[in-house]
Design a protein around this nucleic acid. Sequence first.
DNA 1: GTATACTGCTTGCAAAGAAAACGATTGCAC
DNA 2: GTGCAATCGTTTTCTTTGCAAGCAGTATAC
Lengths: 156, 156
Amino acid sequence: MKQPNVRSHLPHQLIHDVYVLLDDGDRRALAHSNLTPLEFNLLLQLDLEQGQRLTDVGAKLLCVKSTITRLVDRLERDGLVRRNPDPDDRRAQRLILTPRGAAVRAEALAMHNAAVERRMNLLDEQEQEQLTRLLLKLRDGLAADLAAQQAIEAES
Amino acid sequence: MKQPNVRSHLPHQLIHDVYVLLDDGDRRALAHSNLTPLEFNLLLQLDLEQGQRLTDVGAKLLCVKSTITRLVDRLERDGLVRRNPDPDDRRAQRLILTPRGAAVRAEALAMHNAAVERRMNLLDEQEQEQLTRLLLKLRDGLAADLAAQQAIEAES
DNA sequence: GTATACTGCTTGCAAAGAAAACGATTGCAC
DNA sequence: GTGCAATCGTTTTCTTTGCAAGCAGTATAC
């Protein structure tokens, strides 16, 4: 059994390989701004909608609360974001970007956009559209599959 | 700038999302055998060609040597693999699967194959072929891009 | 042959994340 | 209102990983 004898393993493996390569490229592009991909994504979230709670951000970034706490600790220490008290809920904190954070975000976004565009343009426009269509279908199916699995787990 | 205004960001984002979902599914499928994806992949490597050195495995699994050392520590402690001295090079160790390791590997492979097949069959056969073609092209291009970047770094 | 560079692996250290327990606060049932 | 459950965020602990330094063994230059 040299290669797994299941046909569907090839695309599965390829998604993994492509992800690793893209992630590596992202890290290289963001390293100039001293950001990890996760930090960058957090800054992007804040740009979209300031004043979010840590829990909200965690849900969007798909990581647990403690990870967000420490991520924000670092970013706050570096002066990129600030925790503001929530006027309506004394348990919660609202995250806002500092001016310095906004500047870093803009710089990193420009580098990131350029890097993504350069690499994705390895496919022509039509191929990108095809790929998008296939991945959308797969993603939605997988998300449904995950929800079903979680429902099963919740029962037991 | 609600969504990044670069067209190529959508497939980039989708690959990330799909990867996360697939990885999560892999972890669930492998959890029944108490293996992480990396441990599973190491066992698969050994199945392919027994007697490999740690360095060889590290190259195939794309992680640094120290990671392999500790990964093998765990698997050896659990009785799944064994380090054998290399007769030709006293620095090196040859990794072989124990009978117990082979059994665990077989069980995990069956579960993994079933899980991969079920999820990839969210796409029909033709779509899988299309996806494979696109990802192959992208992967090869990205690999070449990475090699070019590394060459630039090596110069400076 | 001896010095030097290189290779294979391990170890120490730090970064990152997950899980669980916790304190503080809120909201819901009654 | 009072009591109980849920929520928000932090802290503690554990696991996994990468990087850099180090040790032992090998190969190359001379």
